[in-house]
Design a protein around this nucleic acid. Structure first.
Lengths: 247, 247
DNA sequence: ACGACGTTTCGGCCGCCGCCGAAGGATCCC
DNA sequence: GGGATCCTTCGGCGGCGGCCGAAACGTCGT
């Protein structure tokens, strides 16, 4: 369509070159499907504006949409796109963004534990990755790779099936933007995260990507990985109300 | 500065969102340092236009520049940036693998030996400079200077006449872009390079600046300077099959 | 000293693109 | 049906940004 398209790289970059579209993609990094209206509000633009942006992102292949009734649900197209956005964000945020120490409750919760597309991030994500490594389950030399013991740990201790080796690598490093270190991503990171969520070991705080480790989760992680997730955070018996996310 | 900067991800993407700037980065993927004019021509824009783009890329941290005389040399800032550009290009272009491979082959040839303006550069250029120095022919203190023995070496051993001392210095250091060290430039560097080319000790690869040391060149350099240029690179008797450069 | 060359600065032009609000479907719930 | 909610389409506005050519600057080589 436009002149930009003569160079595919430029066309792709142009999709992310707009602050509003970039905000959309960053929000969608939590791996969940958002409605167009939610995204519009979270970015602070009119619904009409958001709608056009989202259409461009969809036709550009970065997002996929799913219509349900009067709702339009949007999510990142796949894990590769998520990886790309994370890489760019990490590179861009590099030096000039000590967002880490913002004293808001939401920021603290995010830094503590959150999802990053479909796997764990934040202090929890890094701690789990470190624990796996310390126990010889995960090797971190060139990239990430599960050891034999690691494969067995997933199968018997965690008791979840790992997908057959397909296009997506089992284990890969993902740069954590609060910890500035790598945590476990890839297929193994995804099944680990969903297992923790399914069993109620971690629960989502509000509607965002922040997570909270429950009492049962704390015990389970201690037993499975020797992980000390700290007994802080008071009232564990209040899974419903935890509106730490917003705008 | 602009509104885009409110979201670092968008600011970074905006740098690559312009076809001309994207072309620059893709061209620079070969790891060489290009002059501003070369980049302008390769992208088909005016020198003034290219200059502004390049300044933006430099201040944006994607490129680094180094000035030498009236030239402005530009290269990708580091390997991380190169990785980022490759990732984006791979995602955008879908299937443009051969470009990368050819680029890396070209990059390897360039790093090995090439001309820099009118003298030798790359590993070969630095090695020759080191050999000259080790034999007491070249002094590298403040600048570069040929010793008495060095003058004689050029006249009798290499058997080429050095130009009479004019405006152009006989020997001067020139920063090597791949080796990050200095190699011999100036009038002596120029006559040395043209002598090697004339005698077939080095030949140009394709139409670019990359060079290849021939079998005879290897022997001659070993005898003249005690230089070991490595007997690798297989078939020396096949000058045609070296199409590492292009476009 | 001079000319050639690579690069930069400066105006100025033009087009694209992001933004909005109002109006018009579409869907769900009552 | 009526009304609320979610989204899209359509003009229209404003501004950023890419492009060029001409002129100035610095460097190099003769």
């Amino acid at each position: 369509m436009t002149v930009t398209d003569s160079v595919p790289l430029a066309a792709l970059a142009a999709l992310l070159a707009d602050p509003t579209r970039a905000r959309f993609c960053l929000a969608l990094l939590d791996g969940r499907a958002w409605t167009a209206g939610e995204l519009a509000r979270s970015a602070g633009v009119a619904a009409s504006t958001a709608g056009e942006h989202l259409s461009r992102l969809v036709t550009g292949g970065l997002l996929t949409e799913e219509r349900q009734g009067r709702h339009r649900y949007l999510r990142l197209a796949d894990a590769r796109v998520a990886q790309l956005v994370e890489d760019l964000a990490a590179h861009a945020g590099g030096e000039s963004r000590p967002v880490t120490l913002r004293a808001s409750a939401a920021a603290r919760a995010m830094a503590e534990a959150r999802t990053c597309y479909d796997h764990l991030a934040g202090r929890l994500g890094v701690a789990v990755t470190d624990a796996l490594t310390a126990r010889g389950l995960l090797r971190q030399d060139a990239g990430f790779a599960l050891s034999e013991e690691g494969l067995e740990w997933f199968a018997t201790r965690l008791a979840v099936p790992l997908p057959a080796p397909g296009r997506r690598p089992l284990a890969r490093p993902c740069l954590d933007w609060t910890e500035r270190r790598h945590h476990l991503a890839g297929a193994a990171g995804a099944v680990l995260c969903s297992a923790l969520l399914e069993r109620g070991w971690v629960v989502r705080i509000g509607s965002g990507r922040a997570l909270r480790v429950t009492g049962g989760g704390r015990r389970a992680l201690a037993e499975l990985l020797g992980l000390d997730t700290g007994a802080d955070a008071g009232a564990d018996a209040d899974p419903g109300r935890a509106r730490a996310m917003s705008a």
